[in-house]
Write a protein that binds this DNA or RNA. Structure first.
Length: 441
RNA sequence: CGGGGCGUAGCGCAGUCUGGUAGCGCAUCUGCUUUGGGAGCAGAGGGUCGCAGGUUCAAAUCCUGCCGCCCCGACCA
């Protein structure tokens, strides 16, 4: 993509409404624009990141044996009246009336809808278990939206639902998601720590929050340092393997990990040796629940057992805040100059900077590099604008692409380009060929 | 929902107390000079001063009502 053609309105100044780093940087980097309180438009750069995150989430859900579908944003109040949540949810739920004066709502979550679909379609234990998910926009009318996309009113969420014949089976489903979540966040370059949690308005009695470590996080967290060092990708855990998943869940749930509300210093000190005590801040990016028959009973999701008896299915639900993750990743990965994207979610793989557009040799060299980077299968943002060098460097640092390739007359005389690693700041001068080898390899 | 603050050009702000016909920096456009970390000079364009009433010869400025947005707290993926 040529920067001259790309819609990327970056800003030198920070709009005054943005207080925390991720919000500030997302506005400055031209990723989002606020539409109203807690509601954002995603501009091309931001949308690319959002989609990359979505892609990782999708791949890991699929890998765990979960099937993707899509439910609507607008729901009828009827099912919610059946589950009792139409009243329970309170003013957080955005209620809408259609032209026929029917009560509708903008879905804050989808338990009722999926349970209803399931109830009308599944009759027998032979059809269980089933794991279903979708990635859809949700609306929760927060009293006070803040922190940009970290706590918006409208947000993109992956929510999955499991249907099992009994607790034991439901527990296996729960474990699969537990592991899938560890993998998902690890792939985004995040340390996500599962902590025992309240079930809130979703209900149920088994639940974990997944908290990523970030200095500007909302909650204080205390945990065993083993969490931070355990590499789920390195050990290549398979979420769809029941036994393996159970082992991993076992390992993690035995270690101490609590947010400040649940923190008990005495237990912490008793359970965790001092050198392994980790204390920091975190952001909740995922939440998983087992809630048994809370929705299957009122909504009539029954199946026939082997003995021919009617029994309610046991359910769980599993959320990931997809849009929140964009902010969360930035909170966890930025510096004074801007964002530092982990390669897996970066909007482009590499930024190519032409230092002197009106210099024919320089521009030819850039065009050549641009073509060859693309040939190598890399996603390139080529800054071909007539801007000063400083402005281009600053812009490139701001948007945080993992690599910057700089080409200017000075280097060309020596036959080299400059390659900068955004995360480490390390620069090397090398031939285009070696640069390509390094980037593609 | 309690407490605090803000709304003036695309962004950041001054002007409001003490009413007199709107300004600064950045950005944008033109020209010249510059050119490896957000350039310099000269010129230009751009504003229903959040909205609606009211007071006044005169309102960004005073009064009343409304709307929007942000921050702190209680609540949440």
């Amino acid at each position: 993509m040529r920067r001259s053609a790309f819609f990327l309105p970056t800003m030198k100044d920070t709009p005054k409404e943005a207080e925390i780093a991720s919000h500030r940087l997302m506005l400055r980097a031209g990723m989002i624009r606020q539409s109203s309180a807690g509601i954002y438009s995603w501009l091309p750069l931001g949308y690319r990141v959002l989609r990359n995150i979505e892609k990782i989430v999708r791949e890991e859900q699929d890998r765990a044996g979960c099937q993707e579908m899509l439910m609507p944003t607008i729901q009828s109040s009827e099912l919610w009246e059946k589950s009792g949540r139409y009243d329970d949810y309170g003013p957080e739920m955005l209620r809408i009336r259609d032209r026929h004066d029917r009560d509708m709502l903008y879905g804050p979550t989808n338990e009722e809808l999926i349970t209803d679909i399931f109830a009308h379609s599944v009759r027998s234990y032979r059809e269980l278990p089933k794991l279903l998910y979708h990635i859809q926009w949700k609306f929760r009318d927060e009293v006070r939206p803040r922190f940009g996309v970290m706590r918006g009113r409208e947000f993109l969420m992956k929510d999955a639902y499991s249907f099992d014949p009994n607790y034991e089976a439901a527990r296996e489903s729960y474990n699969k998601f537990f592991v899938a979540y560890l993998r998902t966040f690890a792939r985004m370059g995040l340390k996500a720590i599962p902590m025992e949690a309240d079930t809130g308005p979703i209900g149920g009695n088994l639940s974990h929050e997944f908290i990523i470590l970030a200095e500007t996080g909302e909650s204080q967290v205390f945990c065993d340092r083993n969490f931070v060092e355990y590499d789920v990708l390195g050990t290549d855990i398979d979420a769809s393997n029941t036994t393996q998943a159970a082992e991993v869940v076992d390992y993690f749930t035995r270690l101490y990990a609590r947010t400040d509300e649940k923190h008990d210093p005495a237990t912490f000190e008793a359970d965790v040796p001092s050198e392994r005590r980790y204390e920091g801040r975190g952001i909740e990016v995922g939440h998983i629940f087992y809630f048994g028959t809370k929705y299957s009973e009122p909504l009539g999701a029954f199946y026939a057992t082997r003995d021919g008896e009617e029994a309610p299915v046991h359910m769980g639900s599993y959320g990931i805040g997809v849009s929140r993750l964009v902010g969360g990743i930035i909170e966890a990965s930025h510096d004074d100059d801007g964002i530092i994207w982990p390669a897996s979610v970066a909007p482009f793989d590499v930024g190519l900077i032409n230092l002197q557009v009106d210099n024919e040799d320089c521009t030819n060299a850039c065009e050549d590099a641009y073509a060859r980077l693309k040939e190598a299968g890399l996603d390139v943002l080529y800054d071909d604008r007539e801007e000063r060098a400083g402005a281009k460097f600053a812009d490139m640092d701001l948007i945080g692409l993992p690599w910057q390739m700089t080409i200017g007359p000075r280097g060309l005389k020596k036959g080299v380009v400059e390659l900068k690693n955004r995360a480490t700041g390390e620069r090397q001068e090398l031939s285009l060929d070696s640069a390509l080898t390094q980037l593609a390899g």
